[in-house]
């Protein structure tokens, strides 16, 4: 399958600063691609270049088969963008905002009504269609922006920090909508977020730091590079259980701390079933802790996300 986005030797140089230093990556059709990095890593610069908002100093970007430098309007038609900040016109109603978007993107006149209805259904805002945007809550505005970004059936949807400034419940809801989109529409998504747990839904993530991409893989593979998972286990007789594990299971680092047996394994998926099968002693407590993307981020950049200066 041909990649929807392919970036080659992309570079952006300001007078004294190399904001983006020759990066390469590809995004496959239908995948969720997470783009992570601390503030000032060059994420926004990269996205702005991909979205035709900023001219690259060097390199090439192809989106949906169109060259970002030479076929700006074709690229613009192929992408939908949900910006970090609100870009709705709050004095207008939801319907007016969506209608303007249809006109900007030349959605055929006879299809507008149906499409507006369709995207409003996806984000559950059908009842608010005639309301002014200024009366909306933060979460509703975000949902409306997502709906708007979908109106012209883009090949790629860019989501730049889509959940920033929202409460945890609204955030969770928003991700439900986004996942629903992926399932129903098979749309390719390019996403940046500060909340690394949210990046877990990505099929692949790229970690950017100081203008370079330092890691690019699936979240599980990245976490796999850090070493294994941790299984925490309590039984009715820990000593006996410990012996049994020693006898029957290979490849695990076993230790007993307080009342819990810790097993460090390469992959908990394999181990957990064999442990449950082999142990004759009833298990009272079982906990599997996988390394999180936060651990990955820390390992690659040497700091936690959001720790550096504002960009």
């Amino acid at each position: 399958m041909a990649p929807v986005i392919s970036v080659h030797d992309l570079r952006k140089t300001y007078k004294k600063l190399d904001a983006v230093k020759s990066i390469n990556f590809e995004v496959e059709e239908g995948e969720i691609f997470g783009f992570l990095g601390p503030n000032g890593a060059g994420k926004s610069t990269t996205i702005n270049m991909i979205c035709t908002m900023l001219a690259p100093s060097e390199g090439s970007i192809m989106i949906n088969g169109f060259d970002v430098k030479k076929q700006k309007n074709k690229v613009r038609e192929s992408i939908g963008i949900i910006f970090q900040e609100n870009t709705l016109d709050e004095k207008l109603t939801a319907n007016e905002n969506l209608m303007l978007h249809c006109r900007f993107y030349q959605v055929p006149k006879d299809k507008r009504e149906q499409r507006i209805q369709e995207v409003l259904e996806i984000v559950d805002l059908v009842g608010q269609r005639k309301d002014r945007v200024e009366t909306f809550s933060g979460g509703m505005k975000r949902r409306l922006e997502i709906a708007r970004g979908l109106l012209h059936y883009p090949k790629v949807l860019f989501l730049d920090e889509p959940t920033v400034g929202l409460d945890p419940q609204t955030r969770a809801h928003l991700w439900e909508y986004i996942l629903k989109l992926k399932e129903k529409e098979g749309i390719t998504m390019f996403l940046t977020t500060h909340y690394l747990d949210e990046a877990e839904i990505s099929d692949r993530v790229a970690i950017m730091d100081q203008g370079e991409i330092i890691a690019i893989d699936s979240p599980s593979a990245l976490k796999g590079q850090l070493g294994g998972d941790i299984i925490e286990l309590s039984t009715e007789d820990n000593q006996k259980a410990l012996e049994e594990i020693h006898d029957k299971i290979d490849g695990a680092e076993v230790s007993l701390k307080d009342d819990t047996i810790h097993l460090k394994v390469s992959s908990s998926d394999v181990f957990i079933s064999s442990i449950i099968k082999t142990l004759n002693i009833p298990i009272t407590k079982l906990n599997i802790r996988k390394p999180t993307l936060n651990d990955v981020f820390l390992a690659f950049t040497g700091r936690k996300i959001g720790e550096s200066d504002e960009s």
């Binding site: 870009t87 709050e90 978007h101």
Partner: peptide, 14 residues
């Protein structure tokens, strides 16, 4: 200031 210009500028309008 209110961001709407971005919506206009990323659209394919000439």
């Amino acid at each position: 200031d209110f961001g709407y210009m971005k919506e206009i500028l990323v659209s394919p309008i000439s």
